[in-house]
């Protein structure tokens, strides 16, 4: 059989440039984070890219600790981190802390948010929160096969334009869409595509004023701090973790020009 177009789960996805490096995360060029709601296929994508066998299963809450692996694509080496699935980034639960900290302080070159096409609304909620704390993200709309079975039609192009980030459709279990995902990740990592993430304004009485008053103080304490809006909102919410980061100087790692020390930096 010489059909090269058919999607195939096991044959390295007919992507000749992909080299699955398993656990070998030495001297990588970029760090990629995998975030998303529980059960959206993050680990399946992870396994597809690295050749590893992270546990997958139809049951929210399986991946607790982060798992790491590596792959090479078009000559660049990537370390990829499979974060625990979360519904949000705002709560003080251990898994949300892990996910939030890694996206914020781990400084991934790209954050892939894996979403379930059949429940996109719920998944976009997390995506919007992620876009609040990172500038470089790719949305992977997974479960396209299921969406088709449900009679859903998705306009991913339109979504991508409005979100301001690349959006890739996929059916990770069948290996569909993985080549496109890799391409989008490489584009963002190497700067060929620039993200302009959608950040909706919040209409909460007094918030704009409070943020406007906090920002200059933040900038004075931590010149050039990135995602200052998020930091301000967390402080106004009374989040102890953020207050501690401000107090002990940890927040200093959040500078826009601060280069995350590669690989060994955030263990």
């Amino acid at each position: 059989m010489a059909r090269t177009t058919s999607p195939c789960a096991t044959c390295a996805l007919s992507t000749p440039q992909l080299d699955r490096l398993g656990l070998d995360a030495q001297e990588v060029d970029y760090v990629v984070a995998l975030a998303g709601n529980p059960n959206t296929g993050k680990s399946t994508v992870f396994n597809n890219l690295t050749g590893l066998r992270q546990h997958t299963g139809n049951w929210p809450g399986k991946t607790i600790a982060r798992a790491e692996g590596a792959f090479a694509y078009r000559g660049a080496r990537y370390r990829i981190v499979d974060l625990p699935g979360t519904y949000s980034l705002l709560s003080a639960t251990p898994d949300e802390e892990v996910a939030r900290d890694f996206i914020l302080f781990g400084k991934p070159a790209v954050t892939i948010v894996v979403a379930d096409a059949t429940r996109l609304e719920r998944n976009l909620n997390l995506l919007l929160q992620v876009l609040h704390i990172t500038d470089r993200a790719v949305l992977c709309v997974n479960f396209l096969d299921e969406a088709e079975a449900h009679g859903l039609v998705l306009d991913l192009g339109g979504l991508s334009t409005e979100l301001g980030i690349p959006v890739v459709g996929a059916a990770a279990r069948q290996g569909r869409g993985i080549p496109e995902l890799l391409e989008a990740v490489a584009d963002v990592a190497e700067g060929r595509v620039e993200c302009r993430p959608l950040r909706p304004r919040f209409e909460i009485p007094g918030l704009d004023h409070a943020i406007a008053e906090l920002l200059p103080l933040l900038d004075h304490a931590y010149p050039g701090v990135s995602h200052a809006d998020w930091v301000a909102m967390r402080l106004l919410e009374g989040d102890e973790e953020m207050a501690t980061a401000v107090r002990d100087g940890h927040l200093g790692e959040l500078r826009a020009d601060h280069v995350a020390t590669e690989a060994g930096g955030h263990e």
Binding site: T86, Y87, S88, L90, S91, A92, T93, R122, N125
Partner: peptide
């Protein structure tokens, strides 16, 4: 506390 943020996160 936790119970509230869980409900909110679940939509």
């Amino acid at each position: 506390g936790l119970a509230r943020s869980r409900l909110l996160d679940l939509g």
